[in-house]
């Protein structure tokens, strides 16, 4: 009988231990918080055409030495509209200070994106992303998502959801200070 008791006790201890381990691991992890795996790594390169059909292109590698704000958006994205004033402010304030703001449409038709941009008079460059190749390379899973890319081409920060003026200013000041150092 003794070994049976020990076996049962061992089974209970192992079961409780495993359950505690799994629960501890699962409960300590926020399922809504997505890992920003690209932060600290080289930003995936892209060479995309502007949605306005004018033939203008943007190639990330050609922007080496500048701070780049890469914003994934769509005309149907309501949250993207809420961050538009912050992006507009950043564009106006930093356009002559080595900062390039680029919008990449994600999961949107070029026609809708073009019409939206025209109606809102969006002044920064908006790019079409056929097949969502760039969006997939950046790991976009919802809109809006904004990447701050340092002068050396590494991803410095990823913002999930609409950005605000304070966050954009904080990131740009940090990146400019890093660049000046």
């Amino acid at each position: 009988m003794g070994w049976r008791r020990w076996t049962a006790l061992a089974a209970v201890v192992v079961g409780v231990g495993l359950t505690a381990l799994l629960l501890g691991s699962g409960l300590g992890h926020d399922p809504n918080r997505l890992p920003a795996t690209l932060v600290g790594r080289q930003a995936p390169d892209f060479d995309l055409q502007a949605i306005d059909g004018g033939g203008q292109r943007a190639h990330l590698a050609a922007l080496h030495g500048e701070v780049v704000i890469l914003n994934f958006w769509a005309s149907w994205c309501v949250a993207c509209q809420t961050e538009e004033p912050a992006l507009r402010d950043a564009f106006e304030r930093y356009r002559d200070r080595g900062v390039t703001l680029i919008g990449v449409s994600f999961q949107d038709s070029a026609t809708d994106a073009r019409a939206y941009a025209a109606s809102r008079r969006i002044p920064w460059m908006l790019l079409d992303d056929p097949g969502s190749r760039t969006g997939l390379a950046y790991g976009v899973s919802g809109l809006p998502e904004t990447y701050f890319i340092a002068r050396d081409g590494t991803v410095s920060y990823k913002a999930v959801g609409p950005v605000n003026q304070a966050l954009v200013n904080q990131q740009l000041r940090r990146l400019q200070a890093e660049g000046a150092a």
Partner: peptide, 17 residues
């Protein structure tokens, strides 16, 4: 996985838990 992280895999990674 490089773009999204390991959560993009349907099967768990063969390490750790």
């Amino acid at each position: 996985v490089g773009a999204y992280g390991e959560w993009i895999l349907l099967s768990p990674p063969q390490q750790g838990l």
